[in-house]
Amino acid sequence: MLSGEKVTLRPVTDYDLERFLEFSTDVEVELAGGGEPPGPKTLEQIRTLFTGEKDGLGNSKVNFSIVADGECIGNCGLFEINEVNRTCELGILIGDRGYWGKGYGRDAVRLLLDYAFRLRNFRRVWLEVHSLNERAIRCYKACGFVEEGRLREHAWLAGRYVDHVVMGVLRSEWEGTPPQP
């Protein structure tokens, strides 16, 4: 559906859900994401998470599978979509560790930003990342995100509390034009 230099973003398939379940059992992958503590998940829980048009709170979302070399290597999407403010949260997971640190995540984030700004007409895209995920922070900065704030000791991660870094990019920054007053 959306093709970049290294990856394609396409709709989630049943096969992808099985891959997502595999990724969720890799503790290192789960810790990199920094969300809930790693724990067992079922295929049905994964299906519910990725196939609905709304999250459990009724917020709109859109999910993609990230494909490289003919294989599903992760997922990404837009969440917390606010139609009034024209904002959304970006999320991404490269679940196949063989693709970490090689520009696949950066390519996927750039495609997702193009989708958000050019095709969906969003004004601002934001995200949260835990402060220990330096690889992700470098990726987001390379894609135009700036740090907007920090939630100190916000998440419990592998035996300690860590900060969550809030980052965002405005359409004007993405386009390289001055922001509107």
Score class of each variant (00 low, 15 high):
I66L: 03
V146F: 14
A155C: 13
W174F: 08
E80N: 15
W174M: 07
V62G: 00
G4N: 10
L111A: 01
R160V: 11
V162Q: 06
M1F: 04
T25Y: 13
G98D: 14
A158F: 11
L21Q: 04
E36T: 14
G34P: 05
K141G: 14
V29K: 08
K61R: 10
G149V: 05
D163M: 09
R124C: 06
G101F: 04
K102P: 06
E18I: 00
F50M: 04
E5K: 12
L49N: 05
G70H: 11
F79M: 03
Y104F: 08
K6R: 14
W156F: 13
N133M: 04
G144N: 14
R124M: 13
Y104T: 04
D16R: 07
K54L: 10
P11Y: 09
V62C: 09
G56H: 09
F23Y: 08
D69N: 10
C72P: 07
V162Y: 05
E147P: 02
G74C: 03
S131T: 07
R97Y: 02
P11H: 06
L93N: 01
D55V: 07
C88G: 08
E80D: 12
I46R: 00
G58P: 08
L151D: 10
S60G: 12
K54N: 11
L57R: 14
I81N: 00
L57C: 12
H130I: 08
E30I: 03
L21W: 12
E148T: 03
G39N: 15
L21C: 05
D96R: 04
S60K: 12
F117L: 12
K61E: 06
R118S: 13
G77N: 07
G33W: 00
L119R: 14
P181W: 07
G105W: 01
T8Y: 05
G52P: 08
E28L: 15
G168I: 15
E83V: 14
I81Y: 03
K6L: 10
T48H: 12
E80S: 14
K61Y: 01
A136W: 02
I92D: 00
G144Q: 02
V29T: 07
V166C: 11
E36I: 08
S131N: 12
L93Q: 04
G33S: 03
A142E: 15
V67I: 13
A108E: 01
S65N: 03
G34C: 05
T42W: 02
K102C: 11
G58S: 08
W126F: 11
I73T: 00
V169C: 10
C88P: 06
G34S: 04
